[in-house]
Every structure is written in structure tokens, then in C-alpha cells.
């Protein structure tokens, strides 16, 4: 009984700690006055209106969506192809190559971004959204590879063989048999990449100049100090992230047919 009580108190404390900043962020996004600090005098939607009227933020949002969608598609596609290649064929030095592909997972984004900055600077690729996109594929593709590779089983291999025996060319086997069988893993990879790309800051910060992504635009807003507009845009970003996380959860945890 005592233990149950103590557990409840402790859990409440941790939940409180975890939710405190999010609560304050969202609450004061509805602040009516100029500062997101107590006392709360809302609710008001004026700061959401201010976000929607801010051309830079909207442009940043558009850029973020384009970068997130295209890099996630790219990362998922080449991650899937390589996962299939490594799972189905006997390649020399397979473990080494798989290690190489997953290596970026162990390096911090800051260092990956620095490397790309130095490299692009050297070979003359200007700072741009394209440069950011390349960086986002570098960080997300290993993840897609790892997720999809872990789901490659014998059961799909047998179906692939059946399709091949019936005369299907390799591209048809991949698109009509393998991809549909693995679609939960493929969608999970895609959505996870989307979430990471959506939130990614440091690579975008290093590799863009004027035209940039939403996290960098939010960062620029921070120079103005505490501002309910930052709360409003932050709450929106959080909402989208949670939505993507839920989608991820739904697809990733769907059990494969045995």
C-alpha cells in the first residue's frame, strides 16, 4: 500500500517534469498580451494569426515540408533497395559494407553537418536546401536500412522465388512482392525519417544561408527573446511531430503476418 502510494507520487512527479515545458509552451501560445509569462490572460489566437502572417515562417514551413518529403522518400528508397540486396544475395564483405552504411548513426549531426560544410565548401556546392537535403538523406538512410533490413525474412524470400519462377523480372518482384510484404517497415522508415527531417536543426543551420527550414527560422525568432509568437509556432511544430509519431507507432507496431 505504502509502495503504491509512493509510486503514484513519484510517477506524478516525473509526468509533471516531462509535461511542464510543453504545457507552458502551449498555454502561453494563447496569451493575449505581449509576453509569454504569467499571469495568463488569454485565450487569444492573435499569435497564431501572427505566425500565419509571417512570410518567413511560412516559407520555412514550405521548405521544411519539401525537404522532409523528398529526403524521406529518397532515404527510404535507397535504404530499402540496399536492405533487400544485403538480405537476399551473398555479397563479399557484406558485414563491412553494412557497417559502413549504418556508420552515420553513431556520429552526431553536428559533425556530419561540419563535414558536409567543409566538403561542399571545397568542391564549390553553395549553401542551399539541396545541400540540406543531401545531409538529411545521410542521417536518415542508415535508419531506414536498419529498420527494413531487420524485417527481411525467409518468408518473403520464398514468395519472391515463386514470382521469379513464374517469370517475373526482378523489378516486378521488388515492386509487386517485396515492397507490399514489407510495407509496415517501409512506412515506419518513411515516417521516422519525416519526423527527424522535420525537426532537424544543426545541419540546416550549417548548410543554408537565406532560404532555410522552419527550425532555423524558429531559431532566428529566439533572438527576439520570449515571444508568444514563438510559442504559437512551437506548438504547431510540436503538434505535427506528435501526429507523425502516432503514425509511426501505428505502422511500426503493426504485426507482420506470420
Amino acid at each position: 500500500m505504502m509502495l503504491r502510494f509512493a509510486s503514484t507520487i513519484y510517477a506524478a512527479f516525473i509526468y509533471g517534469f516531462i509535461f511542464l515545458p510543453v504545457f507552458v509552451l502551449v498555454l502561453f501560445s494563447f496569451q493575449a498580451s505581449l509576453f509569454p509569462i504569467p499571469p495568463f490572460n488569454g485565450p487569444s489566437l492573435r499569435w497564431y494569426a501572427a505566425v500565419l502572417a509571417d512570410k518567413r515562417l511560412i516559407a520555412g514551413l514550405g521548405n521544411t515540408i519539401v525537404v522532409a518529403l523528398s529526403t524521406s522518400a529518397m532515404a527510404t528508397l535507397i535504404g530499402f533497395l540496399s536492405a533487400w540486396g544485403f538480405a537476399r544475395f551473398h555479397l563479399p564483405k557484406s558485414a563491412l559494407m553494412r557497417g559502413l552504411i549504418t556508420a552515420p548513426l553513431t556520429i552526431s549531426y553536428l559533425i556530419i553537418g561540419m563535414g558536409l560544410l567543409v566538403f561542399f565548401n571545397r568542391i564549390g556546392i553553395p549553401k542551399s536546401l539541396l545541400a540540406v537535403g543531401i545531409g538529411h538523406v545521410v542521417i536518415n538512410m542508415p535508419l531506414c536500412f536498419a529498420i527494413i533490413y531487420s524485417q527481411m525474412g525467409d518468408h518473403q524470400a520464398n514468395m519472391e522465388r515463386a514470382a521469379r519462377d513464374l517469370g517475373a523480372p526482378e523489378w516486378k518482384v521488388l515492386s509487386l512482392i517485396t515492397a507490399p510484404l514489407l510495407w509496415p517497415a517501409i512506412f515506419a522508415s518513411f515516417f521516422l525519417s519525416m519526423t527527424f527531417s522535420w525537426d532537424e536543426f544543426v545541419i540546416s543551420f550549417l548548410l543554408t544561408r537565406f532560404d532555410t527550414t522552419l527550425p532555423v527560422e524558429i531559431w532566428n525568432l529566439l533572438r527576439a527573446g520570449l515571444n508568444p509568437k514563438t510559442n504559437a509556432v512551437g506548438s504547431l511544430v510540436f503538434g505535427v511531430s506528435v501526429l507523425m509519431a502516432i503514425l509511426f507507432e501505428v505502422f511500426a507496431l503493426r504485426k507482420r503476418p506470420a
Partner: peptide
């Protein structure tokens, strides 16, 4: 328990600034 995990780094740090600043919560 892991829901706020999905807030972006920038937004999460800013949220703590709201909580901890001189006139914060």
C-alpha cells in the same frame, strides 16, 4: 511519458526558457 520527446530540440529548449526565465513560471 515519451510524448514531449517529439518536440524539436529548438522548441524544447525554448520551452524550458519559458519555465526558468526571470519572470517565468
Amino acid at each position: 511519458a515519451v510524448l514531449p520527446f517529439w518536440t524539436s530540440y529548438v522548441v524544447r529548449s525554448y520551452s524550458w526558457l519559458l519555465v526558468l526565465s526571470e519572470n517565468g513560471l
